[in-house]
Design a protein around this nucleic acid. Structure first.
Lengths: 232, 232
DNA sequence: GAACGAATTTGACGTAAATCAAGTAACAGA
DNA sequence: TCTGTTACTTGATTTACGTCAAATTCGTTC
C-alpha cells in the first residue's frame, strides 16, 4: 500500500479516531490488489472473508434474482463496502464487479471483528457507519416507493449536480444503462425520462447534462432532506 | 414496567448479554406508556429523543412525500425501533403510529448512547442489531426492484405462513390496505394479485389465507434465502 | 340485530413503464 | 481510417399498475 493511500484510508471516518496500534493490527493482514475492469470481486451468497476498501477505480454493487439483475450502488474511492456482512459474518447479499481498473485493499473479516472488540473508538465508528448506511438504504426505499422514475431521475440530477454561474451541470459518472438500473428503470425509459425533463430545462449531451432552469427542475423534483440528503 | 415485560425486554438480543448495572442504568430513565390506536408516536423529521421498545400492541412505520404515503414496516412486541436515529442523534426518517392499543417503553436517546459507550457487550449487540436491520432493508430493496407485485405477495405469503398437515395457512396480521402499501401496491391491486394467485392454489377468506398447493406457489414465487430469509 | 361507516372487491379505464425491434451514435481495436 | 461491437435512442406495442366509481362485505355501535 502506498503511503498516500494509507493516509487517505486513515482519514475515513471509520478509521480516523482509532488508536495507531489498532490501525496497524487491522492493516497488518491486508492485501492490496489491482483488478482489471469487469472482474467479479464478490458473489452474492458467498461467505464474507474481507472488508473491502476502495482506493482507486470504481465498483458496482448489484443483485440478481431469477435471471433479473439490478444495480444497487456504485462505490468510489475512498470508501469501504460490505461492512454489515463482515460484522455479522454472514453471506454477501450483493455481488460486486469492477467497472474500471480498480485498486482495492482487502481486510480479513476476522481481523475487523477482532479489532472491533479491542478498540472502542473503532467500535463506535463502525456503529456510526452502519447507522449511516442503514439510513441511506431507508432513504433509497422511500425514493423507490414514493416517487415515479422521472421524479427519481430529476432528484438524482439535483443531488449530483455541480453548481455553476450560468446554470448547473452534471457529469454522469456511470453509463446510462447502469444509472437506469440504479434508478429502477430500463435504459429506454431513462432516455425518455431525460426527454420529459427537457420541459424543465434539462439538456443532455452524452454524459454531460445541463440544468438550465434550476428552479423549474427543483419545483418539479421536490427534493427533500429526509430522502435526498445523504449527510443527515 | 411489569416484571414479565422487563424479562421479555431483557431477553431481546439487544439487551440479553449486557451487565445488570448497564441494564438498570438504561431503564432508570425509561417511561412506560399506553397509547390508544391511531396515535402518531413520532413524526419524520423530528429530532430523535427516545429509543422505542414495543411491549404490547402494534405500530406502523410509514413515510410520506409530496402527499403520498407508504408503509415501511409494522413493529410488534417484543422489539425496538428507530435504533439508527437514536445512535446517530439524527432526525427520524419515518413516522410511527399505533395501529391498535399499544404499550411502549421509551428510553431516552442520551441514556442509550451513554450506556453504549460504557458497556462493550451492549455496544456489540447494537452493532449486530444495526447490521441485521441494514441487511433487512437491503433484502427489501432487492424484493422491490427485482420482483413484480404479484411475486412479492407470493413470497410474503410463503414467508409468514404457518405450516399444516393439509396445506399451509396464513393469518394476515395487518389490514389488506396496509399490506398493499407495505408491498408497494394499491389495495385494488392487492385484491387482484390474490385473484391471480388463485391459479396457484391460494384461497382467501378475509384475513385467512389457505395455500392449497405449496409446491405450485413456491415454484411461482421462487423464494430465496438472500431476499426472504430475515434470519440470515 | 339494525344501521352505519370503513374496508374490500370489482369493473372500466388511463397512465407508467417494460418489451420488442430498428436504427443511430460512440468507441475500441485492427 | 475502417470495422465491429456496444451503448444509446426512437417508435410501436404490450403489460403492469394506478385511478376512479360503484358495489359488496365486514365490523362496530347503538
Amino acid at each position: 500500500m502506498k503511503p498516500t493511500e494509507e493516509a487517505d484510508i486513515r482519514a475515513l471516518s471509520l478509521f480516523k479516531g482509532m488508536a495507531d496500534e489498532s490501525f496497524e493490527a487491522l492493516f497488518r493482514g491486508a492485501y492490496v490488489q489491482n483488478f482489471p475492469p469487469m472482474i467479479e470481486l464478490i458473489t452474492e451468497g458467498d461467505p464474507c472473508d474481507f472488508l473491502h476498501v476502495m482506493v482507486g477505480g470504481s465498483v458496482e454493487l448489484y443483485a440478481s434474482w431469477n435471471g433479473r439483475e439490478t444495480t444497487m450502488a456504485t462505490v468510489r474511492p475512498v470508501s469501504t463496502f460490505i461492512l454489515a456482512a463482515t460484522i455479522r459474518d454472514a453471506p454477501y447479499l450483493m455481488s460486486a464487479r469492477t467497472i474500471e481498473k480498480s485498486r482495492i485493499v482487502l481486510l480479513p473479516s476476522t481481523d475487523v471483528r477482532e479489532v472491533f472488540s479491542a478498540d472502542p473508538v473503532f467500535a463506535r465508528a463502525i456503529v456510526d457507519e452502519l447507522a449511516k448506511c442503514y439510513r441511506g438504504v431507508i432513504k433509497n426505499t422511500k425514493n423507490l416507493k414514493l416517487r415515479t422514475s422521472i421524479e427519481r431521475l430529476a432528484n438524482y440530477l439535483l443531488r449530483v449536480r455541480n453548481f455553476g454561474e450560468d446554470g448547473d451541470t452534471v457529469h454522469l459518472s456511470m453509463e446510462k444503462r447502469r444509472l437506469a438500473s440504479y434508478l429502477g428503470m430500463t435504459p429506454e425509459n431513462l432516455s425518455r425520462a431525460f426527454k420529459t425533463l427537457q420541459g424543465y430545462g434539462v439538456e443532455v449531451d452524452g454524459a454531460r447534462v445541463r440544468i438550465n432552469n434550476v428552479d423549474d427542475l427543483t419545483n418539479f423534483a421536490k427534493p427533500e432532506v429526509l430522502i435526498d440528503d445523504f449527510t443527515v
